[in-house]
Computed example of a mutant assay.
Amino acid sequence: MNVKKIAIAATLLSIVSGTVVGCTNVPNNGNTATNTDPKNVKLRSVGVTLGDLSNPFFVVMAQGAEKEAKKIGGDGVRATVVSSGYDLNQQFNQIENFVAANTDMIILNAADSKGIRPAVDQARQAGKIVIAVDTPVEADVDATVTTNNVQAGEISCQYIADRLKGKGNVVIVNGPPVTSVIQRVDGCLKVLAKYPNIKLLSKDQNAEGSRDGGLRVMSDLLVTFPKIDAVFAINDPSGVGVDLAANQAKRQDFFIVGVDGAPEAIQAIASKDSLYAATATQNPRGMTQKAVQVGNDILHGKKPESPNILIPAKLVTKENVSTSTGW
């Protein structure tokens, strides 16, 4: 196990053994905004359900939520972070547990933007504050905090189009059917549509947002298509998997652009030997910190000016990677 994997494992261990525990044993704290003067309400508990805690992006999101909750509510606040593993049924159960435990607010990174609606509706009917993060949901939440995912797709694929000078074969390595992924792909397709000499070879293969998925999908695509000039991966873990597939197949004929600004992607971009050329950065820590801030304001009777809060994406390339601070 390399140093990076050890660090990630240590972080996950600290989450599991510290404040991230099953929420069904959390006592009823009586913090219900509907029957309490908002001025006297104190944040006591936050429930966070994220896509996949084996992905460092979500580990950083968990850290951001926990840190902001303790900053607002003190050491007595209870932050419960769980991983859905992109399993809709599991996330349903997690939200039901948060509601049963009378959690003050639920921070939701949806496993399925459409399918999660009944669980969100039940939580809202129970008077719970629900803030969507990273990906919007097709449900009535109190607020949504996301990266500007359309912009992330646009700047990524504009880089591809510019580098190819408007001509070449492009592959999109897609991901889970959540709004953030759909928006990134839509942004990419909008840009590529302006270039009639760019041929899109594949756009629907779901790599599940993971390194293993990226390796699997790209290995198949490399067999199918002998000539590829560029790959847009919907996130950096799948992009890293694409890079691994290229190394295994000894293919060097294309470059990779991802989304996240993940540490390993930044390292790959900085390397002279990597096919990784760029990544549209996100701010996972900032997203959940903002979500907890907004949820706390709502708990105290103050709604945000706009329920949709977008965080701009920036493109990191080999030309500016030395100035990137990462997560």
Rank of each mutant, 00 (worst) to 15 (best):
A69T: 05
S219Q: 05
V217D: 12
V242S: 11
G85T: 04
N93V: 08
K5M: 13
A193R: 11
Q183E: 15
T317I: 15
G326H: 05
D75P: 10
I228W: 00
N40D: 15
T144F: 01
D253Q: 10
D112H: 03
D229K: 00
S219A: 11
V316S: 01
D134S: 09
Q125L: 13
E154T: 07
L43N: 03
V150F: 09
D204F: 06
S83I: 06
Q293V: 14
M105V: 13
L299T: 07
P136H: 01
F92I: 12
I160C: 05
V231S: 11
N40S: 13
A143N: 06
Q90G: 07
N109E: 12
P312W: 14
D204W: 02
Q183L: 13
A277L: 03
S238P: 10
R184L: 13
V223Q: 13
Q94H: 01
C188S: 04
N169F: 00
N206R: 04
K203D: 01
V217M: 13
R285S: 07
K114T: 04
Q248A: 09
V145K: 03
A62C: 15
P196Y: 00
K5V: 12
L50C: 08
G166V: 09
N247W: 00
L53C: 10
A10T: 08
N247M: 04
G214A: 13
I298W: 08
I298F: 12
F255Y: 07
R163L: 07
A193P: 04
R78N: 10
K318S: 01
A246L: 15
A207L: 03
D140N: 14
G51H: 06
T279Y: 05
G18C: 05
V82F: 11
